[in-house]
Design a protein around this nucleic acid. Structure first.
Lengths: 230, 230
DNA sequence: ACCGATATTATGTATGCACATATTATAATT
DNA sequence: AATTATAATATGTGCATACATAATATCGGT
């Protein structure tokens, strides 16, 4: 078998690590030695090893050499779910419905999260996301009008606020918090569910540069599960 | 300012995308053109673009050129939490306590998940993970003895099953499911919490190659939140 | 107008080389 | 013996080049 593409080599090295040939924390041969063994240029080995390093399988140090990562950081990565796609992926028909949409003085915690000046108002909206006309998730969202005033002109009846924001300020950063909450009366009625049920909640805040854009809380219908391979 | 390292170039390109200079879905200049513009070799541009592609910011196609990703896949990636680290990160003192540990005939669903032959037994254990001596999470785990019989000899009173498995079969793959559940009597008493509380649940199955190793359900004390930047 | 051969284009990848840089080991100096 | 200079080593990175490969564009013949 001839291996020469960095692809093949990466896989070969990965196999040798995963088979246990190189123990956890063990030093693996130098790039030169590997290049020699596989009969390719050092550059090719370098590329393969760099990929493995960025995957967290090995740790590299100048002069120290490359060693199998002591604590292989198994990291789950999953896409931030766009509800429409989530629903349509399971064959359902997606629809959303705006329950309310108004300017309001934000609560203290929201004002802090979005860095909204005291006295200023923000856009608050409640949306129900439906799969085949039955509730799928209930969304509460605050939008900072100081940073995205254009949203007042957006056709939010056709495009959900989420989708509009993704298209308009696509490269924002943010954070997510997953938790479980008991459904209160508001949530239960929005989801046509019962008070006290365990609800999977996603809390998300996004900003761009130093400008805080929106914060959102998503309550999934009970029974929802978030899956991720790792 | 001279930019020439693939690092600088990657950042420069990223800026141009995020500033909106190149719109969503727009075709960006070819590697040759960019190499010309930045006064560097095509290889360097190639490397920068490949990184951006693997980050999901651009999509590349032979002859088709490189274009800004239509739907920038915001992917949250977070490490699979190791309980000890999670607890110790918040300054708490970690400790765990095995409540039960015995050979049992697995339930039908577990037997399916771990591909255990009918009639065979598996190791079932319940563990409480404590932070500063108060319950932090309650774990139910099944271990497939057909694939890791060695666990029967492991010192599980010192090292948690989780940690032992991570050290012994480090490069397994798996999946995770996050959900919310109502605490039943077992869970509530294990966590010194109340029946009916909303519990954040992590369900994880791991395998290596075709061999199914373990499946685990982790019930976090109510109020737990899983945070992730993105 | 249709179909197929050929050229063109942009990315993908391997190579040899040179030099940079971090780190450790060793030797030289005090 | 402690400190400092120097060499050795492994990875990091850039460049020029060559060829591979996929997808599109163009042109010619029927």
């Amino acid at each position: 078998m001839t291996v020469n593409s960095h692809h093949d080599i990466r896989q070969a090295l990965r196999d040798r690590i995963e088979s246990g040939e190189w123990q956890l924390g063990a030093l693996i041969p130098s790039e030169m030695a590997l290049a020699d063994e596989y009969g390719c240029a050092r550059t090719t080995i370098n590329r393969a090893l760099q990929t493995l390093a960025s995957d967290g399988l090995v740790v590299r140090k100048r002069k120290g050499g490359t060693r199998v990562c002591e604590m292989p950081v198994r990291q789950a990565k999953f896409e931030i779910p766009i509800l429409r796609e989530q629903v349509e992926a399971t064959g359902g028909k997606y629809r959303h419905q705006i329950m309310s949409q108004k300017l309001r003085t934000p609560t203290a915690s929201v004002r802090t999260q979005l860095r909204i000046s005291a006295g200023k108002k923000a856009l608050f909206m409640e949306t129900i996301h439906l799969a085949d006309d039955s509730p799928y998730a209930y969304e509460q969202r605050w939008v900072n009008l100081q940073t995205v005033p254009e949203i007042m002109q957006a056709p939010l009846d056709q495009l959900s606020a989420n989708e509009w924001l993704v298209k308009t300020v696509p490269f924002s950063s943010g954070d997510v918090i997953f938790s479980a909450e008991k459904a209160d009366k508001t949530i239960a009625s929005a989801l046509q569910s019962d008070v006290g049920n365990a609800i999977f909640v996603v809390d998300r805040t996004t900003w761009m540069g130093g400008d805080f854009i929106t914060t959102m809380k998503l309550y999934y219908k009970d029974g929802y599960q978030l899956y991720s391979p790792l």
